[in-house]
Amino acid sequence: MSKPTNESISSGNVQQFLTFVLNDETYGVGILHIREIIEYDNLTIVPLMPDFISGVINLRGNVVPVINLARRFEHQAKEVGKRTSIIIIDIEDQDGESVEVGMVVDIVNEVIELADSDIAAAPMFGAKIRADFIQGMGKIDDKLMILLDVNHVLSINELSAITNIADELTTPSKSDTL
């Protein structure tokens, strides 16, 4: 996955998106957020985490969390198949620090270009995922595709906050400190 060049960003109002399939639905994610795409392999489960956190992987010496996107959308997750991949996304946490997070998808498709005119606002309701996860709707050949807002989908604040709740739920009630 090569990084987009500056020309592709600045040339008019065209944006590039990587499209992928999850549960037979096609989604797009802005290419600027994407660090790389890797095979689904060697994932280590982190105990006591909610099921939308698949675990962690070793990405060149760094331990990177991997999100099960289907579960994050509160859909059923498909079995891991040959084409299951992890898209490594670069996001900023609340402190402005860059954090790498992986998300598991069924199939990675291609990079497409969408003009601003091909992007519609997110629908207020009726979508299969949370409205704030949607950055917009991309239109290709009269078909609509959800363009993800990764900052919300992978919000560190939210992921770790949920962890907290999950932890409290699964931890047996603690005895007194002593």
């Binding site: 982190v46 006591l48 985490m49 990177v64 954090v99 560190i156 962890t163 907290n164 931890t171």
Partner: peptide
């Protein structure tokens, strides 16, 4: 482990 796991105990 990073911030995602900041509240993980054990």
């Amino acid at each position: 482990l990073g911030k995602v796991f900041q509240n993980l105990k054990g």
